[in-house]
Design a protein around this nucleic acid. Structure first.
Lengths: 192, 192
DNA sequence: TACTTTTACGACTGATTAGTCAATCGCAAA
DNA sequence: TTTGCGATTGACTAATCAGTCGTAAAAGTA
């Protein structure tokens, strides 16, 4: 494994457990098994490490979702696989997900370029827009719906991890909660 | 204003803007207009300051909700006023709310006594339980529903503050989103 | 006033921090 | 074998950190 990756892995774990400022660069280097100075060869500053780690993880999550999204014309099915795969990724990568959550509510978020942020949510917004145009999803601002969905994922993650549910119970809860979410955002058909 | 309050106000602002570890105690003292040592007369350690500030703010929010909750037997109305008043408090006290959000996803949360945490959510869980017993709210774990609701509040707060909506538009969005939430968690009556 | 107690001060300390840099290493090309 | 060079090292620094403590002002008491 190359040094850059060693540093990233060590940083991720320590940041998630102790917070950004609560983690010294020297401890990251120690955990990674590299010298102090090596860290600063790969990342000019600590801030750059934190921020590029965030972008890296979001990209990873994005790729995972894309890969596991059913290739279907059915908006509900597409959205379901996007949401469920986010959750499975989060449950399988709890350290990474905890890092993202922490970063997201931290002042660091303001240091990420708007363009990068936008590029990452764009595919999700596009799907919502499509659903709205087809009259399947409620006619509301797409980013409001996106915000509600992603926070629903956070909430469900919170619940599932705080209780120690069996895999089966977990699955059931996730499925059920998606149906509830869909009920909330979908446009009810008017009977004619 | 007494020194303790001056320290708390300064700490709140700096923590919300720069994070917990990103804020030096010396800067808090400076901003509060008290001496370095004075801070440690009121709070034994920095951690104690952070944690008691969190508990203090959650209590404040709790009191606000209680005060502004309609005294009604109608579960939906009661829940609506609880949720809307949380949101209004958050919008009127964005620094405090941002602090709470940050704390909530930080490793500090593990340092808060379970009992304190439980006491603060208990009234909300009780209302949900009541709704479930009356067959008004879906028969699911109360803390799952609570988690979904509070994250919905976070999401809506996020949306409303990122867009610069007029007060009227804000109100409309909040009302509408509550109705969607209610649609999601309420038990549909079976027609007979 | 004279005494005690409480509150506040800010210089100070030892530890820790992010980041630097001159020296060294490993290795490929000559 | 020798030379050249990017990658790596870890001792080092200047700054900053949380927390202490002796002193002094302020407040309370009689």
């Amino acid at each position: 494994m190359d040094k850059r990756e060693l540093i990233i892995n060590a940083a991720l774990k320590l940041f998630a457990d102790n917070g950004f400022h609560g983690t010294a660069t020297s401890r990251i280097a120690l955990e990674a098994g590299v010298a102090n100075g090596t860290l600063f060869q790969y990342f000019k500053t600590k801030d750059e490490l934190v921020i590029s780690l965030y972008i890296h993880l979001k990209d990873e999550l994005g790729e995972y979702i894309t890969k596991h999204t059913a290739d279907t014309k059915d908006i509900k099915e597409a959205m379901k696989s996007q949401i469920l795969s986010s959750l499975f990724w989060a449950l399988d990568n709890s350290t990474k997900f905890r890092f993202i959550q922490q970063f997201h509510t931290s002042p660091y978020i303001g240091q990420v370029e708007k363009g990068v942020l936008h590029k990452q949510v764009e595919p999700h917004l596009a799907l919502i827009q499509k659903g709205i145009k087809q009259g399947i999803i409620k006619s509301l601002p797409a980013d409001l719906i996106y915000s509600l969905i992603s926070n629903q994922v956070f909430g469900l993650y919170q619940f599932v991890t705080s209780k120690k549910l069996s895999k089966i119970k977990q699955q059931e809860t996730i499925q059920l909660t998606f149906e509830m979410l869909w009920e909330m955002i979908s446009q009810k058909k008017v009977l004619t």
